[in-house]
Write a protein that binds this DNA or RNA. Structure first.
Lengths: 210, 210
DNA sequence: CTGATTACCTATCGCTGATAGGTGAATGGA
DNA sequence: TCCATTCACCTATCAGCGATAGGTAATCAG
């Protein structure tokens, strides 16, 4: 399956950080392609061109590699949502654009989305059960959605429900579509873009005052 | 963690099937509690009271245990949806009841739901990429939803979108809520029942003609 | 040139999923 | 009643896993 292990030349003295990036790049690709549990540290190491224990100079566990990718994926999504152009006074179109951006992110970068929202490492499982918080990037990306709903609510543009509930409902609606499309590519979906457009239309229509 | 391995007495001659059920029961509990990848075949065997290789008399791989639980979970959901009382001519209330039943199933049996929709074994990953089909139970449970939407559509009770798209959209909306509630119990959700009621209200309101 | 630091290595650990090959209780036909 | 077969289950062992211990050689500052 995997080719021979061509050793990568040793990094110069201050440049161990480059190796770290190489590991993350290789891991993202492999995790995305085969799933985190089907990829061994030896495979990652081989893809990078180093010995397996060398990974542990940069990460203390295999899960920590997933963790870092997880955080970066969240940060990417948050950045994407934050950097959207917005009207000075928030409009319904701004919300629609954000919903679309969320779905696009998930479908354009399914590996990242999987890792951000669908991946379950042992670390996560414990973390999510005990800590009342999500990682920063996660709060931030949900926060963008939340703030938009709050702003629209203040302008009385949303239906008569508290904005917290509306925002969580929207998130659920978005995540459901993205995660099913990613996880069940073999399902007989209707034409993808049509489904997305309709779904986002339904969600926006459900949340926005008519 | 796990206590001592009290050996279970040998099954009588024709009763190996009972052992199989015991294995599935133990595996469902352990997979649900710790996640499939964090549970070893030795732990399952210990919980049942047999040696680890004996598992392989009943299942040819560990994934096959997950597979069987997966199919059973789907069948349960399908049964639950199929057995709902329904009006002779389908009403919007029937649809709402089905939506609620779906969510209730997921939240009452998070282990089963996780295994049915959120679990990713190596087998699955390949299967879903190559085969155009879901397991029977899966098609069946989505089918119930689909048929309801079709029936409502024929009575012109739905909004002006094709029923296939509406049904898939509904499914995504349901799955998103259930999977996030299950996977992120630490998130600062609004009161759960309120969120569910609102969400289902939004979904139904979005799909049904006003 | 030297000493410290850095970037890596090989060897090995306990554990995992899975296989090979055997044992001994139950059963049904002679 | 004997015996062959079947069935339920065992111990021993495998290669591969994540992770650790401990060493080595390249590199850089002084």
């Amino acid at each position: 399956m995997t080719g021979k292990a061509a050793r990568s030349p040793r990094k110069a003295k201050g440049h161990g950080g480059e190796r770290r990036e190489e590991i993350l790049t290789a891991a993202l690709r492999l995790f995305g392609e085969f799933g985190i549990h089907a990829v061994s540290t030896r495979q990652i190491a081989a893809a990078v061109g180093i010995s397996q224990p060398t990974l542990y100079a940069y990460f203390s566990t295999k899960d920590e590699i997933g963790e870092e990718l997880h955080n970066r994926a969240f940060a990417q999504l948050a950045a994407r949502l934050t950097q959207l152009p917005r009207s000075r006074i928030l409009t319904q179109e701004d919300l629609s654009a954000a919903l679309k951006a969320y779905v696009d992110f998930g479908l354009e970068q399914p590996d990242a989305y999987r890792i951000a929202f669908m991946l379950e490492t042992a670390t996560h499982r414990t973390q999510f059960l005990t800590k009342p918080d999500l990682p920063a990037g996660s709060r931030e990306s949900f926060g963008v959605l939340h703030q938009m709903v709050v702003a629209l609510h203040e302008q009385a543009l949303t239906v008569d429900l508290d904005p917290d509930t509306l925002a969580q409902s929207l998130w659920a609606g978005l995540h459901g579509l993205v995660s099913l499309l990613i996880a069940r590519p073999g399902f007989p979906w209707v034409e993808r873009q049509h489904l997305i457009d309709s779904h986002l239309g339904l969600l926006a229509g459900a949340v926005l005052r008519r």
